[in-house]
Each structure stands twice: as C-alpha cells, then as structure tokens.
C-alpha cells in the first residue's frame, strides 16, 4: 500500500526582490568570541581611565598604540602611559560612514600626536563642528564611565573644554 510521503510545510516565506533572476534576502549574522589577547591591557586601561601606548626600551621608539613587539628592532615593548594632552595631527568630519555608524553622522575623526611619542592615535573628537577643526589644536582624552571594552571607550575633546 503506497502512502504519499511529504515533508511538513511551514508558512514562513522568502523575501524576493526580483523574480528573474531570482534575488532574495539572505540573512547572515554571527557572534564571535573575540579576544584582545596581548592587547588586553590597553582595553582594561581604558576602563580605568588610562590611555596606554608602547615603548621599545631597546631602540627608544614610542608608539601611541599597542604594539607588543617593536616594528623596527623586533624587541618586546613595554606599556607606556601617554601624555595627558595631545594635538590634532589630522582630522575629518564624516557625513556618511559604514552602515553601523550612519546614525552617528556627522562625527569627527582625528589623528592625535603626543609630545615625545613617535606615532599617532586615531579617535573621535566630540563637541566641535567641522568649521572649528584645525591641525595643531590641543586635545585631551575622556573616558566612558560605563566602559564597553571598545576603542570608543576613549574619545577626545578640545583641551580648553571643562
């Protein structure tokens, strides 16, 4: 006796944007278990209101970012607390951005230079419009009270802000 074998069907559908060729919505997302690994002290530093770079004690090079090993001599670096003020080395105001940041536009990005440090630090500058931005302006870091353990835990404001 033959009985018709069928898979049970559901009522959810597929979103089609076009029928020929068929173009459909193909959702994709994932959560990573992402480790900051050797750069962890930088991020725990931000949570404690500390901005850390790296210093090579062998050749004397100072980085405004975490670099576990020196780019030039290859030796292991040590953590370095960056100066409490810096200057704008370059800047831009973003009116568009990646999808994740569109809702935050317009926002300012700056590269910060610190006295006695050989490289720069990329961050946001808050509280200033494009018309008042300039290379050389003195800036200082501020930290989120509620740390998110992201690079955005630190941001900059003009030095003369309270």
């Amino acid at each position: 006796m033959s009985k018709k074998i069928k898979i049970s069907e559901t009522e959810d559908g597929t979103m089609l944007f076009n029928v020929d060729p068929i173009i459909f919505k193909d959702h994709y997302e994932m959560d990573y278990l992402h480790s900051y690994a050797q750069d962890t002290p930088f991020f725990s530093g931000l949570a404690n209101g500390l901005l850390l770079g790296s210093e090579c004690k062998s050749c004397g090079y100072k980085y405004a970012t975490p670099r576990k090993y020196c780019m030039y001599c290859g030796n292991e670096t040590e953590w370095l607390e960056l100066p409490s003020v810096g200057r704008i080395h370059s800047w831009t105001t973003c009116y568009y951005g990646s999808q994740a940041f569109l809702k935050e536009t317009p926002y300012n990005l700056i590269l910060v230079e610190f006295e006695g440090v050989n490289t720069l630090f990329l961050s946001r500058l808050i509280g200033v419009g494009q018309e008042n931005l300039d290379i050389g302006l003195e800036v200082k870091p501020r930290f989120l009270r509620n740390s998110k353990f992201k690079a955005t835990d630190v941001y900059f404001v003009l030095s003369d802000e309270n």
Binding site: T65, T92, C94, F101, L109, L122, A151, T152
Partner: peptide, 19 residues
C-alpha cells in the same frame, strides 16, 4: 582599533589628504 571608532575608507583618505 580603527573600524570601531567609525573608521571607513573615505574617512581615512580624508585624514590623509587634510594632512
């Protein structure tokens, strides 16, 4: 470090050319 602060390529090149 760069992407999470709102970095994207037009922004990076804008900072390069401002300098």
């Amino acid at each position: 470090f760069d992407y999470p602060v709102g970095g994207f390529y037009t922004g990076y090149y804008a900072m390069m050319v401002v300098r």
